[in-house]
Computed example of a mutant assay.
Amino acid sequence: MNAFCAWMREAIKAKEREIQQVNRCSFDEWYQSFGYPVIEKTELPKKIRVEDLIAEMNVKERNRYFTLEAIAVTIGKYIHPGGKFSDAREELLTKTMKPYTADGTGKDTLIYSHTASVSQEKVEEVFFELQKIHRQNERELNRIKFALKRESDRLNLESQQKYKSELERASLQYKRMFSQYKEWQIKESDRISKLKIIVPDALQTTYEKLSLLEE
């Protein structure tokens, strides 16, 4: 009787262990053990910058872009307020209106007469010509920059929409497979719990005697 109880106790423990193994089996373990295709992780797309699009330009286009930038910086550095040409022009206008300046007092006073080394008309002509070139250059440069920004926005929106679509697809796949996994756990636990315990030949007589007692 003790041997029979020991056998049955161990058999019940074995069933309980198998049920526990089913319950402890993670979704990833179950997924891999059944050889299902791997659910691909959806990675956040890399943001496309204007610089990336410039890098994809051909040699001619890229050289034109950099040339326009260089011209804009170079001319702007001279004609914008605080630039050398702008300051020299302002000084010319001031000293043309006031050609004489005094320095010192009394007998030590020095009178300076300022004479332009180039005509005011020529300065104005060159200044406005540079402004004109600068505006034309800026228009072309801004047009290219606007087109690049619009293209980068379009590509980023496109990649975000694709990312969202892939994310939804992966999420649906995960939910579907997770539902199958939970269903497997329930069915497998139920199957194990219904397994019949094999009684060894040596304990068969004891089993039959106990079965008679139940009747």
Rank of each mutant, 00 (worst) to 15 (best):
Y181G: 04
N23Y: 13
Y65A: 07
K13P: 03
E43H: 11
E140D: 09
R139T: 07
V22G: 03
E61G: 11
F27W: 03
F178H: 12
K77F: 13
R64Q: 09
L213R: 00
T101S: 13
E183S: 13
I39P: 00
R62D: 05
R176T: 15
K164T: 12
E124Q: 05
R135I: 08
E140A: 14
H114A: 03
Q120Y: 14
I133L: 14
K196Y: 00
T109M: 15
M57E: 00
Y174S: 02
Q136W: 15
Y100M: 05
Y163C: 10
V199R: 03
V123W: 06
V22A: 02
G83R: 01
W7S: 04
L130E: 00
I186L: 08
E10A: 09
P81R: 10
E29G: 02
N156P: 02
T42W: 04
A202P: 01
A55V: 14
T96G: 10
K46H: 13
G83S: 05
T109Q: 08
M1N: 01
T94D: 05
I192N: 03
E69V: 14
Y100S: 02
K77V: 11
N58S: 09
Q131K: 13
L203N: 01
M8P: 00
T205A: 08
L93V: 05
E29Q: 13
L155F: 10
Q185L: 05
I133C: 10
P37L: 03
S171V: 08
S33Q: 07
S119Q: 08
D153G: 05
Q20W: 06
W7K: 03
M1P: 05
E56N: 01
T115V: 05
C25V: 04
E40M: 12
S117L: 09
E125H: 12
D87T: 15
I144A: 04
Q180Y: 10
